[in-house]
């Protein structure tokens, strides 16, 4: 079976909802072949549940509400949890690698939609991208590490903002949100912009995260703390 896989996270919080949207596509194929998706939810070292969902079709977008698929997440209000998602098509010669996926985090007053990390083989791994830490009256930045593998992950950081985050290792099948150190942030010279003062620093991973893991910069609303933007690092 041809498959494509993403590794990401969702948010289990009262009055919030996590939905994943798939758009299974294959170059040059218009037929709506059946597509199967398998979703696994993990946190704190264990895979809590895996579910196979049928009914998706090639070239047809569709969504799955994670809180309905894994209702125990809302009951526990666990905060962030890891998600591994695999799309598969039984048809031979259907290359799903052009498929798209959005993760949507929503509550009554905010929404963010972002594209999760596609799991790649070691030879396909691209260079680390660079991101930005910002702290101001609107946004706070945190780092989210997702480890969907059975091995411990020890990410390293580079860039002027690296000392702002105290990174520890990430246990297997776990998710770790690292909040910026207030004392380190206070040492950054604030800069005046049209919207007020902001503290800025650049940040990158010192080496790519192993296949089956992912790292995101998450920008939370400074008042409500709800995530407003998520960007792969």
């Amino acid at each position: 079976m041809q498959t494509v896989q993403w590794i990401t996270f969702g948010l289990a919080q009262s009055l919030s909802k996590t939905t994943v949207h798939f758009f299974p596509s294959a170059a040059g194929i218009a037929a709506p072949y059946p597509v199967v998706t398998r979703l696994s939810c993990f946190r704190a070292g264990e895979c809590q549940k895996s579910v196979t969902v049928e009914g998706l079709r090639l070239q047809q977008p569709d969504g799955i509400v994670i809180d309905e698929l894994f209702p125990f997440l809302q009951e526990q209000s666990t905060g962030l949890f890891g998600l591994e998602m695999t799309l598969g098509c039984g048809q031979p010669r259907v290359d799903l690698s052009r498929s798209n996926c959005f993760v949507e985090l929503r509550n009554k007053s905010a929404v963010t939609k972002f594209r999760p990390t596609m799991v790649q083989t070691a030879s396909d791994k691209s260079d680390c991208s660079t991101g930005m830490i910002i702290k101001d009256a609107y946004l706070n930045t945190s780092l989210v590490f997702v480890n969907g593998t059975e091995q411990e992950m020890s990410p390293g950081l580079s860039g002027s903002g690296a000392p702002i985050f105290q990174c520890s290792s990430v246990a297997p099948l776990s998710i770790l949100e690292v909040v910026a150190s207030e004392s380190a942030l206070d040492k950054i010279e604030p800069r005046q912009f049209g919207w007020g003062m902001s503290r800025l620093q650049s940040l990158a991973l010192s080496e790519p995260i192993a296949s089956g893991g992912a790292c995101y910069l998450m920008y939370r609303d400074a008042v409500s703390r709800f995530p407003l933007s998520v960007r792969q690092l």
């Binding site: 991101g131 930005m132 101001d136 919207w195 920008y219």
Partner: peptide, 13 residues
């Protein structure tokens, strides 16, 4: 790396 931010009175992203 280029990052585009928009903001209004209440919010930025």
């Amino acid at each position: 790396t280029m990052l585009h931010r928009i903001h209004c009175r209440q919010r930025a992203c």
